[in-house]
Design a protein around this nucleic acid. Structure first.
Length: 584
DNA sequence: AGATACTTCGCCCTCTGCTGGTCTACT
DNA sequence: AAGTAGACCAGCAGAGGGCGAAGTATCT
């Protein structure tokens, strides 16, 4: 079994959270050309129903899976199954491992996949949406594109799995039909009569022992039945089935997976396969299939927004937009719940996007580097790094930035008053940016497993900040003590010089006379004074009295009687005179 | 057939946090 | 003067919120 391309995708970027897929760990050749995945819905399923190779489902499910999946159904939840295309090579059509593991993980989807180029393997099952009810009978109805065996470009697809009030016949497999992956309508009582079910309509069944593709099975079944030929052009494109006694007729679109119990619905549906768009916008010449679509479109030109929110000033073109807005802003209802974390969202697309943070799926690839994104916006934003474009300009200093957020921080930090600063909770440090406070906390306040020792004493510290503070206590300490007298000093070199007073050592001899000195600078002064005829001592003249002095001493901060602080330079011999004079 | 409900895709935004280069104070 | 460490700063990606708009299915 080849590893999926998804899993092989390099991850130079942020690590993906979530469980890893492990379905290819074990493999056994079942000798068959198909794989069946069976989903069991908790206690509502027959625990003795047989799964793969006759193994009882309950037995298969005992092992659980690495993923924590699908808790018991909660009212008002939908489910998503993430499927991934897995390409197979000749001789690698070992489906047993896949199926076995996926039964454990997914427990519930019964599928037929032909031995061949690619198979679909469920990645995760996530709850989604509203509509399911407590005590539902189990059943998962899925229709899958016929081309699942060949669409190499589609690495991950999603199929909505709905808890309809049907019971899947587990001796049968799912029906795979042509066309797109079909999303079935949510389970609402009002629609119950229209949904097609596995038991009621055998359209969803196919013998797993048959090596033919499932759609072939269906066609075979159709051949056995006398089909109703409709003279209508549209109807002529559809497969229809005769009504057997007590059985409903399923009208089936030949161009996609659409089915309906009503011919009128099918006829209307067939228009979606037509390019005919007779309703043209007079403002932009864009064409639409229906008057309603055109009207909504024209409203975007005119600004007409008939659907006003009762709780705020917002208004929308359609009621759907208003309903969504109200969920976001007012009711805070989030029906799409992630089964792997606490995330929930207002929209299904947001849940799908969120799930990519669990699966690591990155469908949007940069064609210039190895980066791949989980959504289109991030890829677009990433592409700016290749173009070098800096679209955001600071209106104050005209500095340019790659992202709006970066510019916003810049303006806040550089051009705003009352800039917020973040105080470290462990010390009194204030840091301009929250993210840098995080760096500060990691560097200075994180616990270190290996304690650090003070270089001046035996103290040990597990926190860098504590060590730094401790070291400061040594700063003005005369920690170098003479063992022969009471002398103590701050620097070791001073102690070395001092110790020569005890030993009598004078290591700096004058090269011109026999005199020796304990310190080098004493030798230098001696040499200049007695042996260097070119040496002219610098004379600093006092600006007050004109008297000359050999050196400056230092600058000195003085506070006058008014409290002002001034910098005063003075001569050492003049110190008292100058200071007194200045202060007066 | 029109109205309505619902789905899907896309765009843009904000907030967040990590990273690495630079600046600066301290040793 | 040089080395070091912490703060500053811009770049950049992850995650999620909110809305616009078009498409599709169902209801009336």
């Amino acid at each position: 079994m080849m590893a999926s391309e998804d899993s092989a995708l390099p991850e130079p970027f942020t690590k993906i959270k979530g469980a890893e897929r492990t379905w290819d760990r074990t493999r056994e050749d079942d000798g068959g050309g198909k794989i069946s995945w069976v989903k069991e819905r908790n206690s509502m399923c027959d625990p003795h129903a047989e799964g793969l190779n006759g193994a009882p489902l309950a037995k298969l499910l005992e092992g659980g899976g690495n993923l924590e999946l699908s808790p018991s159904p909660v009212q008002g939840e939908k489910h998503l199954i993430m499927l991934q295309t897995v390409h197979l090579k000749e001789g690698e059509e070992d489906f047993q491992g896949i199926s076995q593991l996926n039964i454990q993980q997914q427990s519930g989807v019964h599928m037929v996949v032909q031995r061949g180029a690619s198979v679909l393997q469920p990645l995760v099952v996530v709850q989604q949406g509203v509509g399911a009810q407590q005590n539902l009978p189990t059943g998962v109805a899925i229709s899958i594109q016929d081309g699942v065996y060949t669409f190499h470009d589609m690495e991950v697809m999603q199929i909505n799995v709905l808890q309809e009030k049907v019971q899947i016949d587990r001796s049968k497999d799912l029906h795979v039909v042509e066309g797109k992956v079909q999303q079935l309508p949510p389970n609402e009582e009002g629609r119950e009569k229209d949904i097609f079910t596995v038991e009621k309509a055998k359209i969803l069944s196919c013998d797993a022992k048959d090596d033919m593709s499932v759609s072939h099975c269906e066609h075979k079944e159709q051949e056995e039945q006398a089909s109703i030929k409709n003279t209508d052009t549209l109807e002529a494109q559809t497969n229809t089935q005769h009504r057997k006694k007590g059985e409903k007729v399923i009208f089936h679109c030949d161009l996609c997976a659409f089915t309906s119990l009503r011919m009128s619905s099918l006829n209307r549906h067939m228009k979606t396969h037509s390019d005919e768009k007779p309703h043209v916008c007079h403002l932009c010449l864009k064409a639409f299939r229906t008057v309603t679509l055109l009207r909504n479109h024209v409203n975007t030109h005119t600004g007409t927004r008939p659907h006003k929110c009762s709780d705020c000033e917002m208004a929308f073109v359609t009621s759907g937009e208003l309903a969504r807005h109200r969920r976001y802003k007012h009711t805070l209802e989030k029906p799409f719940k992630c089964s792997m974390c606490k995330y929930s969202s207002v929209e299904a697309s947001k849940l799908k996007r969120h799930i990519r943070s669990h699966t690591g799926e990155r469908p949007y690839k940069c064609y210039l580097c190895s980066y791949a994104s989980k959504d289109t916006y991030k890829l677009k934003r990433h592409m700016v790094t290749h173009s070098g474009e800096k679209p955001y300009e600071c209106y104050v200093c005209q500095a340019r930035f790659t992202q709006s957020g970066t510019m916003k921080i810049h303006i806040l930090q550089k051009h705003s008053e009352n800039v917020p600063r973040y105080q470290c909770p462990h010390c009194n440090t204030f840091i301009a940016r929250k993210s840098d406070l995080g760096v500060h906390l990691r560097n200075l306040h994180s616990y270190l497993a290996v304690a650090m020792k003070c270089r001046y004493c035996e103290a040990l510290f597990h926190e860098r900040y504590a060590l730094i503070q401790h070291k400061k206590t040594h700063r003005n300490e005369k920690r170098f003590k003479c063992d022969q007298c009471s002398y103590a000093c701050k620097q070791e070199r001073h102690l070395i010089v001092h110790k020569r007073t005890h030993t009598g050592e004078k290591p700096f001899p004058c090269v011109c006379c026999s005199k020796c000195f304990r310190q080098k600078q004493l030798l230098t002064v001696h040499f200049r004074k007695h042996h260097d005829s070119n040496f002219k001592p610098t004379v600093y003249e006092c600006p007050k009295c004109g008297k000359g002095y050999s050196r400056w001493v230092r600058y000195f901060l003085l506070r006058n009687l008014s409290g002002e602080i001034s910098l005063v330079k003075y001569y050492i011999s003049h110190f008292y005179k100058e200071a007194v004079y200045w202060l007066n």
